[in-house]
Amino acid sequence: MSRFREALERGEFVVTGEVAPPLGTDLTSMRKAVETVGPHCHALNVTDNQGATLHLSSLAASRVVMDMGYEPIFQQTCRDRNRLALQSDLLAAWTLGLQNLLAVTGDDPRSGDHPHAKGVFDLDSTQLAAIATAMNGGHDMLGRELDGATDFLVGAAMFPEAEPWEIQLIRAQRKAEAGVRFFQTQAIFDMGKLERAVEALRPMGVKIIAGVLLLRSPRAIDFINRKLAGLMVPDHIADRIRRADDPAEEAIALATEQVRDIREIADGVHIMPLGMDGAVGRILGNKSS
């Protein structure tokens, strides 16, 4: 069983991080990121053409992470593949030894570097999670028996701060019913909203891993507000970074406070370092780094 899954099921507070596969075949910088962030994390998300921009596939990159001795969370978006390809890649992932899955919708191609691409969206993320769950039970999406089943820990994304909450909640409940066992959330700025989500979803037996974003500079904040889907940095937080003498230090202080708060509320934290990989240990309060 995956160490990540074991820790979650034991009720340990888990830490996940994120690495992006390269645009190309040189894995040097990805390996460096894995070596920097990996030691602090139970598992590392490996993104799938993130932001609808071309990268080496999550499938191959996840295996690289695994071969380096770390545990990947294989991300699969519904944007680039139809139901045949998605199912085929799920089977491939399991045979490659990938045990953790994050099923997400994917950004629209119009927001990425190939704006003329056809967005596939043959399935949505809830349906994909349901299919992965079915494969765990030994069947494909049509109910046909597989010659060898999977046993993924199925995860999905959740957005505790995006209103209307009532609609977010219905969506999250549908995902939980589809077999999702953990949620990784978008960056949290309002701990009250995180609490609201945890209280509503924990009774369904799902774990909530709350997102923390390192707001390294005023420019990064502008980028997030302009480009990142489903996320706005609230003014009081943006101002704190903008007015700081050393914005990067202030971002680390802010993230450290957020992690401390999240420990009291959720089941884990998902760190998105936005390039400040070296700061991850400090944010988590690890003295060794």
Binding site: G119, A157, A162
Partner: peptide
């Protein structure tokens, strides 16, 4: 725009 049957996606805001 994504033609999702089960939504909203993660990009919905307010």
């Amino acid at each position: 725009p994504k033609g999702l049957l089960n939504g909203p996606c993660g990009g919905m805001w307010n």
